[in-house]
Amino acid sequence: MAKYIGKRLLYMIISLWLIVTATFFLMRVAPGNPFASEKKLPPEIEANLQAHYGLDKPWYQQYTDYLVNVVTWDFGPSFKYKSQTVNDLISEGFPVSFLLGMEAIFIAVALGVLFGVIAALKQNKWQDYTTMAIAVLGISVPSFIMASFLQYFLAIKLGVFPVARWESFQHTILPAIALAAGPMAYIARLTRSSMIEVLANDYIKTAKAKGLSSGVITVKHAMRNALLPVVTYLGPLTASILTGSFVIEKIFGIPGLGFHFVTSITNRDYTVIMGVTVFYSIILLVAILLVDIAYGIIDPRIKLAGGKKGE
């Protein structure tokens, strides 16, 4: 177990280093970048950048400084706004994004699994066809389109929900649903196919031959095994919720990190783009690592030392 985690951590660090390096050098070649020599910046910003990156130092010095800064969790100043640092933006925006993301993950997993299980148990009946038709629609509607539709019909036309902003629980519902819809549909499909596969297994017959009720068989024998692939999807799910949040926060005017990120893209605020990208990458890689470790704990067949499936 320890060996496996160590190995995974190593790969994660290599990936992260690649990301940090790539971001750093990409930003240097970007048109109008903060590292170009002939730039006209307000003196305060120039001073901030100077203090943080040491713009007069050679590039390799700047690069190592940047690596050290990332390790010490310091993502540097904004390139456009003088008194703002990336760390400020993160501590201000991330809690909001986190809350929204968690709400969406909860909706996606809970409802996705529920629909998937129902569809599998009622295979080839109308319940199955209905859920799967909705699911295929769900994965075909990008979250930002879902968000605009929800906003237009439920908030603007019917006035059931607030149109935008981030004030009460009411305000979180539409964005969370819009964010969750796609992953939910995906989870429903995944659960269904995995459930059908599991239900055809001999051990389900064994359980039935023991005289267990179909409810017990579904929950204790089928679902436990069927949900393993869903657990592996939690990593990509986090990624999808995270990137989805950029546009959702933009549409609903939610002051989360995604919103700031989109603004920084529009403003070409390079240092913010760079810092937030690195921050998001860390979050994602850690989430994926956690999911993999959790999977190893849930599935007894996984021998974590080798990182391969048993048998």
Binding site: D202, Y203, T206, A209, G211, L212, S213, R224, N225, L228
Partner: peptide
Amino acid sequence: DKEMESIRGKEISMIFQDPMTSLNPTM
């Protein structure tokens, strides 16, 4: 099916062909 539950396992039991697949791998 409900009535059969009290017969299966209690009155009549069954052993299947492939012991590799007839046991639940995660239990």
